[in-house]
């Protein structure tokens, strides 16, 4: 299944691994921040509603 990458396997692997890691980090950052802010706003609004 794995394609034959020849003498440049390390370069191709590094490019794909770095891109995957950076995109995963970016998506995680956006999702974690979204959840944190949403939770804090919900708490604040429910506190003010009381």
């Amino acid at each position: 299944m794995m394609p034959e990458l020849g003498p440049y396997a390390a370069e191709v692997g590094l490019a794909y691994a770095a891109t995957g890691a950076l995109l995963a980090g970016l998506i995680a950052y956006v999702l974690i921040r979204a959840r944190r802010v949403r939770r804090a706003l919900d708490e604040l609004e429910s506190r003010r509603g009381k």
Partner: peptide, 27 residues
């Protein structure tokens, strides 16, 4: 499309953060 999805999600978060900041200032 990934950019658009993350932009929409990020903007929603910033709008919520802005509202939270306004509420805290009012408080």
């Amino acid at each position: 499309l990934l950019f658009i999805a993350l932009l929409l999600a990020g903007t929603r978060t910033e709008i919520r953060a802005r509202r939270m900041q306004a509420l805290l200032t009012r408080e």
